[in-house]
Design a protein around this nucleic acid. Sequence first.
DNA 1: ATCCTATTGACAGGTTCCTGACAATCTGGC
DNA 2: GCCAGATTGTCAGGAACCTGTCAATAGGAT
Lengths: 154, 154
Amino acid sequence: MALKAEDMGSLSFMVRRTWLSMRSAISVELKEYGLTSPQYATLLIVAGNPGCSNSDIARKVASTRQAANEMLTALEGRGLLTRAPNPADRRTQQLHITDAGSAVLAGAHAAVQRREAELETGFTDEERAVVRRWCETIGDKCEPGEGGWPGLGV
Amino acid sequence: MALKAEDMGSLSFMVRRTWLSMRSAISVELKEYGLTSPQYATLLIVAGNPGCSNSDIARKVASTRQAANEMLTALEGRGLLTRAPNPADRRTQQLHITDAGSAVLAGAHAAVQRREAELETGFTDEERAVVRRWCETIGDKCEPGEGGWPGLGV
DNA sequence: ATCCTATTGACAGGTTCCTGACAATCTGGC
DNA sequence: GCCAGATTGTCAGGAACCTGTCAATAGGAT
């Protein structure tokens, strides 16, 4: 089935709108945990990658070191994660989630998983796989320079 | 093929990263037109919907009236679009793209279409259709209240 | 040992989003 | 005609992104 011209208004427009919609919907779920979508995602990454750095976070979400820094500063300020100097590299800080952070994340994660599962009902495993491959591939191609990402997973 | 648990870190995380990546890549293309991705998308909507309102823009991109207002204020300030009172509804303003806006948009659109076509190489028409339907459906389900969007197209 | 390039985290200022609130207006029900 | 609820655009303040810049550090080449 060929796509109509007007369906191709803009790919990035389509993705942006999907993101803004999901962010709003997920924010409703996260509100009771005092988190926003980006904060939740950041805690998820740190929990899954103990010892990772500010730059690692920025790379994983395809944002800037500055944006990651601000996010981490706020989460550290709330006691949800800690930053410690990396003895092996004095430029770098190592991130670890705190007990408080883990507790918040556990509840938030369940809520987000439930809501996202709802959103994706009606799609087959194959369709879901196509979407994931599309997102990963497109994201890779957007990266400046060679090679891919450190993986789609958090 | 069943998806692995770790592939399901978070759907919204995946979409967010795709958006941030595309935004960055498209910004490179738009730079010479003095536009950002959101500005480009807004001009595209106004060009395709002469007379639409601030709230129409907000709905079409799934953002807030305030966000749309700020975007439009900036574009109006640069002479790329105009706002005029709507004689049929004194609450509402009608948006129209200017000649300067159309000129900028024409060049920008060609550049974005080219780059987005590059990004999507390697995907079949069917796969592209799956992604579009996924985005539209997910976005619809995120909307509070009943019914769908005013359409995916701009 | 020196030097160059790259990387890191942070600062400053700007853009793009948000929530909450408000006044003006519209619309439908009574 | 009146009124209640909804809609619109805007204000104010905050969160999440960005670019450009800088100092400190790492690592490889010489």
